[in-house]
């Protein structure tokens, strides 16, 4: 665990109190606390989920980053590791799970499928990346990313958390936390925002 940055506020500490006091900024301690206890949602979609399990297991062990507490319930999770192909049939569930997660929440798209559709992109039941449904923080390429690549992505996520300023975070601002509208399973997957366009098209036909 990295605590180097924690006690360095960016200005000189007088020699006589050095080692006796800890000075830090709210941002630093706030982000340090959050980045060291990112609890992922126990949520596996496809092939990448197996590598995610391998990462959680003994050899790579992401509990070294404070991530061992995988929560089966979205209500207790901070991080959604989208590990695999997002299908249209699964899309409403994924959005619902995301909406149920409390802020602050992060999404990591693990692997090609979750990032951009992957090899199955052309398929009729595949969503071209989970970013078509929910906002994504870190993209990890690879099919599947090896456990070390996944940890690399998680470190990237920690870096992102480090860079956040508590005043600017969306969960302390009003009005930004509207739930994402849940897409519908119609003749195909229907996003709520497409409904007017589809209506228009079917009228013309």
């Amino acid at each position: 665990m990295e605590t180097k940055g924690l006690n360095s506020p960016g200005y000189e500490i007088p020699d006589d109190v050095k080692g006796a006091v800890a000075i830090t900024t709210i941002d630093r301690i706030y982000n340090w606390g959050r980045r060291s206890s990112v609890w992922p949602l126990m949520f596996g979609l496809a092939c990448c989920a197996i590598e995610m399990i391998a990462t959680a297991a003994g050899r790579y062990d992401f509990s070294r980053f404070g991530m061992e507490v995988m929560r089966p319930s979205p209500r207790q999770a901070d991080l959604m590791l989208v590990s695999g192909t997002v299908t249209k049939k699964m899309a409403p569930t994924i959005v619902r799970l995301y909406n149920q997660m409390p802020e602050p929440k992060y999404v990591v798209a693990m692997g090609a499928c979750a990032s951009g559709g992957g090899p199955f992109k052309e398929g009729y039941n595949v969503v071209s990346g989970v970013d078509k449904l929910i906002p994504v923080d870190v993209y990890i390429p690879g099919c599947p990313p090896t456990p070390q690549a996944l940890i690399n992505g998680l470190i990237k996520l920690q870096e992102k958390i480090d860079g956040q300023h508590w005043k600017d975070t969306r969960w302390y601002r009003e009005g930004d936390l509207a739930a994402i509208p849940i897409p519908m399973l119609g003749p195909d997957l229907i996003y709520q925002e497409q409904i007017p366009a589809i209506k228009e098209a079917s009228k013309e036909a």
């Binding site: 870190v138 070390q148 992102k160």
Partner: peptide, 10 residues
């Protein structure tokens, strides 16, 4: 090189 995670699509 597998350390290519990023904040956007690749």
């Amino acid at each position: 090189d597998y350390e290519i995670a990023s904040y956007g699509r690749t």
